[in-house]
Amino acid sequence: MKAIWNDVVIAESNDTVEVEGNHYFPFDSIKQEYFKKTDLTTFCGWKGMANYYSVNVNGKINKDCAWYYAKPNDAASKIKGMVAFWNGIKIK
């Protein structure tokens, strides 16, 4: 699987986990140079507190387009250490 933004592969892995239609990529599969942590957090009743990244590729920023659960609830333990995408990030 590949995550693509602004025609650039920002994450690539053969070991994604699909939850609720989203592919979660291992942290070590994202290209760190494109990612910047943001202050946004959201809460999911069964997964826990999500933190976000914005992605900057060739000067184009996609704000809060990637999220992860640093300390997911037990029910979501399989996505610990993984990142998912939305907001125009193409997953192929």
Score class of each variant (00 low, 15 high):
D64S: 06
D15Y: 09
S29P: 00
N58V: 02
T38M: 12
K36P: 00
W86F: 14
C65V: 15
M49G: 04
A11R: 02
E18S: 10
Y52I: 13
S13V: 08
M82L: 10
S54R: 11
G88L: 05
E18F: 07
E18T: 14
K60E: 13
V9D: 00
T42I: 05
L40P: 00
A75N: 09
I79Q: 00
P72W: 11
A76F: 10
T38G: 09
V83R: 02
G45M: 09
N51D: 14
M82H: 10
F43L: 14
I4V: 15
K2V: 01
M49K: 15
E20H: 06
D15K: 12
D28Q: 11
W67D: 01
N87A: 15
K36V: 15
G81M: 04
V8F: 06
K31T: 10
P72C: 13
F27Q: 08
D28K: 14
A11K: 01
T38I: 14
T42W: 07
W46M: 04
I61P: 00
A66D: 02
F85K: 02
E12W: 03
I91H: 05
I30S: 03
A3Y: 01
G88R: 07
A11M: 02
W5D: 01
N51T: 12
I4D: 01
C65K: 06
V8S: 03
Y53L: 03
S54D: 09
W67A: 01
V19E: 10
S77D: 11
F85E: 03
F35D: 04
E33H: 08
F35V: 08
H23I: 07
W5R: 05
K36I: 11
C65S: 15
G48A: 13
K47A: 06
I79C: 01
E20F: 08
T41H: 02
N87M: 08
V17S: 03
N6P: 02
M49R: 12
Y52G: 03
F43M: 11
K78T: 14
K80H: 04
A50P: 05
C65G: 14
T42E: 05
A84F: 09
G21T: 02
I89C: 09
K31E: 11
K63Y: 11
N56R: 06
N22I: 09
D74L: 13
V8T: 13
I91E: 06
W46L: 05
N14D: 14
L40K: 15
F27P: 00
P72V: 06
G88H: 07
M82E: 04
D7Q: 09
D74Q: 13
F85V: 02
W86P: 02
G88T: 04
K36E: 14
F43V: 15
E20N: 12
N58A: 07
S29T: 07
I10V: 13
F85D: 00
N6A: 05
E18D: 10
Y69W: 12
K60D: 04
I89L: 02
L40N: 03
W67G: 00
N58L: 05
N58C: 02
M49S: 09
M82F: 11
M49D: 12
A70T: 07
E12K: 06
S54W: 04
V19M: 11
V57E: 01
D39S: 13
E33Y: 09
V57D: 01
W5C: 05
Y53G: 01
A66W: 03
K2Q: 13
D64K: 05
V83N: 03
G21V: 06
N58F: 06
K47E: 08
D64H: 07
K36H: 12
M1P: 04
I61V: 15
D39V: 12
K31I: 14
E12G: 00
